[in-house]
């Protein structure tokens, strides 16, 4: 039993039920109905993703008697321990946002830097 698929399917059903109930109990109120509708759609989307992911993933954790040969750690893939790009991505995000409000020049410069940093981060993570 892939628990998380069931979990998302149940939440999606609940989201739909809640949106429908709200529509009938408070039908003049469009904002809440729209919010709940979007939420229900998002839950359906994630449930769909869960189904797809479950088909393609081969999970160690789901067999109660899984042998221990495939020990975690290095076997699960090599994990990076340091990267300079994340803090630069975060800083550039802040500067881009601040620039949008106060200084178009800063917004453009920081925006370009942000794209560059994301690109370098992507390239780095493809290697390790």
């Amino acid at each position: 039993m892939k628990t998380f698929v069931g979990l998302f399917a149940a939440s999606a059903l609940f989201g739909i039920a809640l949106a429908v109930a709200y529509w009938f109990v408070a039908h003049e109120e469009a904002t809440g109905a729209a919010l709940l509708g979007c939420m229900a759609a998002a839950l359906v989307f994630t449930a769909g993703y869960a189904v797809v992911a479950e088909r393609s993933a081969d999970l160690d954790g789901d067999d109660p008697n899984e042998p221990l040969e495939r020990v975690a750690g290095e076997e699960l893939g090599i994990f990076t321990t340091r990267s300079a790009w994340p803090i630069l991505v975060a800083s550039c995000s802040l500067l881009t946002l601040a620039g949008t409000l106060w200084s178009p020049a800063l917004a453009v410069a920081a925006g370009i830097a942000l794209i560059l940093c994301c690109w370098r981060l992507g390239a780095e993570s493809a290697r390790v």
Binding site: T3, F4, A50, A53, A57, L59, D60, G61, D62, D63, P64, N65, E66, P67, L68, R70, V71, A72, L76
Partner: peptide, 14 residues
């Protein structure tokens, strides 16, 4: 992480 990185034997219900 919770869905896909559990160790062998660590089922969701554990």
């Amino acid at each position: 992480t919770i869905f896909l990185f559990r160790a062998p034997g660590m089922t969701m219900w554990r």
